[in-house]
Amino acid sequence: MTAKSAGLALCPVCHECLRWQAARPDAKQTCPRCGATVRQRHYGSIGRSWALTLTALILLIPANLLPIMTMSQFGEGEASTIVGGVVFLVHHGMVPIALIVFIASFAVPFLKITGIVVLLLSVQFKWETSPRQRTLMYRMVEYIGKWSMLDIFVIAILAKLVDLGKIASIEGNPAAVYFGLAVIMTMLAAMVFDQRLIWDATEKKENDDLRK
């Protein structure tokens, strides 16, 4: 038995357990104790999560095509993309930093977007995959989101460390802004996704099996 099937709802602010009195499951009611808005499910979360995920995917295009930083040596600078920056760092013997930039710039954003898309499709098309596995995937997406800004931090640190005037310097470029916005969009997409929707299909299937 779940709170939803028992006609209950939990206040997200004061955690008061309320009897659900709204006429529709996608409606809302007010908590009598703290006055907060209470919903059994955030039914608009799928649409909002899709919008934020697609926005992040679009933002990643200029983030990877435009120059993300300018590396200058002896007064001569050359703007480079993320791939160019990784190559530059490897060429100058900074392999660990290059690996961090590559993972933070490619692996983390695209793995996170892929995970969110899989979760959204599984809920919309009611995939018969393990809800435990999908919940674990959601937790992983949330966890790696903490490291999504690592690339921006690396550029900021390098800009401070490699600041030798006309001898050598590193500056951030517009792609860093697009990348930062893309990371924020993926974080919001994960936040607005209601993971309880993963278990709703399982609950419905179990109830149908009991009726049979």
Rank of each mutant, 00 (worst) to 15 (best):
residue 2 T to G: 00
residue 4 K to C: 01
residue 4 K to W: 09
residue 5 S to F: 06
residue 5 S to D: 12
residue 8 L to G: 01
residue 8 L to D: 01
residue 9 A to K: 00
residue 11 C to K: 07
residue 16 E to Q: 12
residue 18 L to A: 06
residue 21 Q to L: 12
residue 24 R to A: 12
residue 25 P to M: 10
residue 26 D to R: 11
residue 26 D to N: 11
residue 28 K to S: 15
residue 30 T to R: 14
residue 30 T to P: 02
residue 31 C to Y: 07
residue 31 C to M: 06
residue 32 P to A: 07
residue 35 G to M: 05
residue 36 A to M: 09
residue 37 T to I: 13
residue 38 V to Y: 07
residue 38 V to E: 05
residue 39 R to W: 04
residue 40 Q to C: 10
residue 40 Q to D: 06
residue 43 Y to T: 15
residue 44 G to H: 06
residue 45 S to R: 02
residue 46 I to G: 03
residue 46 I to C: 03
residue 51 A to G: 05
residue 53 T to M: 10
residue 53 T to K: 03
residue 56 A to C: 04
residue 59 L to C: 07
residue 59 L to F: 12
residue 60 L to K: 04
residue 60 L to N: 03
residue 68 I to V: 15
residue 68 I to G: 13
residue 69 M to K: 00
residue 69 M to D: 09
residue 69 M to C: 11
residue 69 M to W: 14
residue 70 T to K: 12
residue 71 M to I: 14
residue 71 M to Q: 10
residue 72 S to A: 12
residue 73 Q to Y: 09
residue 74 F to I: 07
residue 76 E to W: 06
residue 77 G to I: 07
residue 80 S to I: 10
residue 81 T to C: 02
residue 82 I to S: 02
residue 87 V to S: 01
residue 91 H to F: 08
residue 95 V to G: 02
residue 97 I to F: 08
residue 98 A to N: 00
residue 99 L to M: 13
residue 100 I to Q: 08
residue 102 F to L: 15
residue 102 F to A: 15
residue 103 I to T: 12
residue 103 I to C: 08
residue 104 A to K: 00
residue 105 S to W: 01
residue 106 F to L: 09
residue 107 A to D: 00
residue 107 A to E: 01
residue 108 V to R: 00
residue 108 V to T: 06
residue 112 K to F: 00
residue 113 I to D: 04
residue 113 I to R: 01
residue 114 T to L: 11
residue 115 G to L: 00
residue 116 I to E: 00
residue 117 V to I: 12
residue 118 V to F: 08
residue 119 L to H: 02
residue 121 L to N: 06
residue 123 V to W: 01
residue 123 V to A: 03
residue 123 V to H: 01
residue 127 W to K: 03
residue 128 E to P: 05
residue 129 T to C: 08
residue 130 S to F: 06
residue 130 S to I: 05
residue 131 P to Y: 06
residue 136 L to W: 13
residue 136 L to S: 13
residue 137 M to F: 09
residue 137 M to R: 12
residue 138 Y to M: 15
residue 138 Y to R: 13
residue 139 R to H: 14
residue 139 R to T: 10
residue 140 M to H: 07
residue 140 M to Y: 11
residue 142 E to P: 00
residue 155 I to Q: 02
residue 156 A to W: 07
residue 157 I to S: 08
residue 158 L to N: 01
residue 159 A to C: 08
residue 160 K to T: 08
residue 160 K to Q: 10
residue 162 V to Y: 09
residue 164 L to N: 09
residue 164 L to Y: 11
residue 165 G to R: 06
residue 166 K to W: 11
residue 167 I to R: 07
residue 173 N to S: 15
residue 174 P to D: 04
residue 179 F to P: 00
residue 181 L to H: 04
residue 185 M to F: 15
residue 187 M to R: 05
residue 188 L to C: 08
residue 188 L to W: 10
residue 188 L to M: 14
residue 192 V to Q: 07
residue 196 R to E: 13
residue 197 L to E: 10
residue 198 I to A: 02
residue 200 D to R: 13
residue 201 A to N: 08
residue 203 E to A: 14
residue 204 K to R: 15
residue 204 K to Y: 07
residue 206 E to V: 10
residue 206 E to G: 05
residue 208 D to N: 11
residue 208 D to H: 12
residue 211 R to C: 05
residue 212 K to H: 12
